[in-house]
Design a binder for these strands. Sequence first.
DNA 1: CTAAAAATACCTGAAAACCGGTAGTGAAAT
DNA 2: ATTTCACTACCGGTTTTCAGGTATTTTTAG
Lengths: 215, 215
Amino acid sequence: MKIILIDDHQLFLDGLGLILDSIEGVELLEKYTSPEQAIRLIEVLKPDVVFSDLDMPKLTGKQVAEHIKRVHPEIKVVILSMHVDPTIIKGLLDIGVDGYLLKTDDIEDFEHAVKLLSKDKKAFSPAVTDLLNSGKTNSIGAGTSFGNEHDLSMLSNREKEVLTAVAQGLSTKALSDKLCISPGTAETHRKNIMRKLDANNVADLVRIAVKAGLV
Amino acid sequence: MKIILIDDHQLFLDGLGLILDSIEGVELLEKYTSPEQAIRLIEVLKPDVVFSDLDMPKLTGKQVAEHIKRVHPEIKVVILSMHVDPTIIKGLLDIGVDGYLLKTDDIEDFEHAVKLLSKDKKAFSPAVTDLLNSGKTNSIGAGTSFGNEHDLSMLSNREKEVLTAVAQGLSTKALSDKLCISPGTAETHRKNIMRKLDANNVADLVRIAVKAGLV
DNA sequence: CTAAAAATACCTGAAAACCGGTAGTGAAAT
DNA sequence: ATTTCACTACCGGTTTTCAGGTATTTTTAG
């Protein structure tokens, strides 16, 4: 199995290269910190599989996957990522990627993934497999998501007002006075907002509000 | 030189382990995906140098460095990071870290860093060295940090850690686990912080923390 | 017009935050 | 040497949040 690697972090790339070299039946053709260069040379190298990082400065792993799948559908693309994010994963599946591995995986997981790929099967991290099996985009319990976009579009106008007030440090009582609603209503709004934004407490709400420019 | 590694990404950890093994004069004692565990076992292992990732979920590399430098000042701490961020780097220098390497560095940079460390010199990435030389952080003794630095000067280091944790949305219990203190102590810290910053609730704390760049 | 969505309001119980203390230890400063 | 300060820890009581609801009205969209 001929492989090329793409990751903007040279150190990770070097390390992963060493790991891959130690796996039976793997031939590491080339490593790239530049997605553009990798794409340019893919014609020449004719790899079986491309492992690409997701978060990269100029060209994201998703864009790399899209390009490769459009031009060379026969080449398998596996995305390496730090985050278990259902929406990201779904987007990648739509493109037709052949795997999604996590940087928190260990070498065994990686070897297993290589085996699956060699059998023309898709390769996902255990954690990702669990996610895909356990319903869909609903993840409230275990991991609080890191880098997801907190766009406030799903909030109603009133809810945005409430969120702003909460983020300003107003108590439910003060907030309800200010917005001329009952404290119970304020609570309801806050609950709905927290559900929609997957926030578990006031601190989460404030961070989101600040990042969204509400305060 | 006895080394331990800390990074929440198992795959990176494995790869970096292989790289370090290939470097002359390096003995890799142990690798940890859990900063807490690493800190707990540091007494036993007695490493010369700790390489730690900066961005980690439960305990940041900065907190790891703070803890190690507080408890075992003789152990060198080198931070691995993805970003060339002056404010971050300055904060780490204040703590007294012995190096700041980038994940975009290559193996040669890494070997060079190890050499410097063995000579009791500080080890920085070329890109970071450039930044440090190009002005900026020369004002070391003075507390006048560049940027706005919202008034957190009255807080002790520990209190800043607590504030950061609170702003990240951790409950008192979770926070106390993370910082290895009792919930009561965490409460005390939070109280003192709120008094010092004239904050009345978590929302106020989060806003201040975000504006101060703690999160 | 009607159905859906949004906004309003309330209830309950467990958990957590909040606020007032007190108090020991160890390190640093005067 | 004594004081000061940071850090640690605990107590007791009050308030608030948080997570389940339920339910009515108003507004919006098809």
